[in-house]
Design a binder for these strands. Structure first.
Lengths: 131, 131, 131, 131
DNA sequence: GTGGTCTAGACCACT
DNA sequence: GTGGTCTAGACCACC
């Protein structure tokens, strides 16, 4: 079997109100960064991805195009598309995601007039309320 | 002074790549939720908001319509638009925002294979690195 | 005491998203038709109604104007406004309301592909479900 | 034939004194709820609906936006607008309409000092009178 | 004065 | 081709 991994979670649900290619990019990016799809892995062809998920081939193509722009995947003409082997790139993408998540979380806390720690703390109390 | 508050931050910058009315909705929503604009306050008229920010009146109207649908503001025909006096609605909107922020933060942490606490912790180390 | 009745229910709530005068007309109409406000009763002045409910005098004036057009009230210049003493008018208004309510109810049932009787029957089952 | 159904009744008449988009929303909602337009059906494009009924495309767009907010239809970016396949949503909308109709009918009966059953009964006698 | 709606026509992103 | 958004300007009902 060429691909012992799944490019996307099996039950991946497309949200029709957001660009499909964006949802694909983010989901695949997460799987690469988390190591679920190891460096050097061969990705399915644009046609296969499109057929497998029932989307337009141009949508699949745009997905790969964005990931390539980020440096997470590389295309070798005539051979296919692969996850980069440069760990530094993956590590940097990981950090970018971390910083982005933290920045947004802090911004939300700031808006609410509390600290990020307090916001995270709220979650535990809130869960108790629901019980 | 009729309005001792500012509906939007003075230096509010419109991001041309996102719907203007969405940016307005979010920004105003935050100010209401955080208490910066107190319950019962009168909001500027659709025309004033439009003129003040250099957008079309229909764009300003749509902003108010969305906020009204959320229950955060109420319009009195022929009189104007006001922040709701129902604290429960505001409190609920506040919780919705908190839960959304927490959910996204946890999802990001999950993707990275760490806990939300660890992700938040990373921020401090990271800041040190930059120094 | 000039008015042993209340023109409007004490806790009458104005819905800001509908014309106020329409809400007043309908509420007063109901009270006249149901006999809560007897024929010949003197109604409060436009100014008193406006002040009592905190609305614009023009809104109160328009309310009386509409009721007068329906023939339910009569204005004697210099004396005030009174509920008509013509029972036939009140009786006819009563029938108009009945027919309107029935027509709307049947239309709704028709849309749903059931009879008015079935729709009314649904109510009892539905109430049980909630319990 | 792409659309074996009619989105709106052929002889649908626009009432100029009510918002057009509201009339559209209600009429289409009824056809979806009654099953005349089956789940998954593709609706005419915004432009086609507008052209067919002689209204502005933005008015047609607003119609679809409202229906989407209710959950009755879903739009797939770049592909079109479709009736939801979630029967539960349609069923719930159906119940909402039923409850609203019953509530209004009972309120009318209450105003008249009779029961809903009596009001419905009146209809038969009344019809005889007219004969 | 207020908000609500509609038209006309343009531009954009997505598929 | 699809829907989504914005501008420009008009008309209306309501208060």
């Amino acid at each position: 079997m060429d691909q012992p991994y799944e490019l996307l979670p099996e039950q991946f649900q497309i949200n029709p109100s957001l660009p499909i290619y964006e949802q694909f990019v983010e989901a695949i990016q997460r799987r690469i960064i988390s190591g679920l799809i190891p460096p050097g892995s061969r990705l399915p062809s644009v046609r296969d991805l499109a057929a497998g998920r029932g989307v337009n081939p141009t949508t699949a193509a745009r997905t790969y195009q964005e990931l390539e722009r980020m440096g997470l995947i590389v295309t070798y003409r005539g051979q296919g598309t692969f996850v980069t082997r440069e760990d530094a790139v993956i590590g940097e993408a990981r950090k970018v995601i971390m910083r982005k998540a933290i920045k947004e979380f802090k911004a939300a806390a700031d808006t609410l007039g509390i600290t990020a720690e307090q916001l995270l703390e709220f979650d535990k109390e809130d869960s108790n309320d629901i019980l």
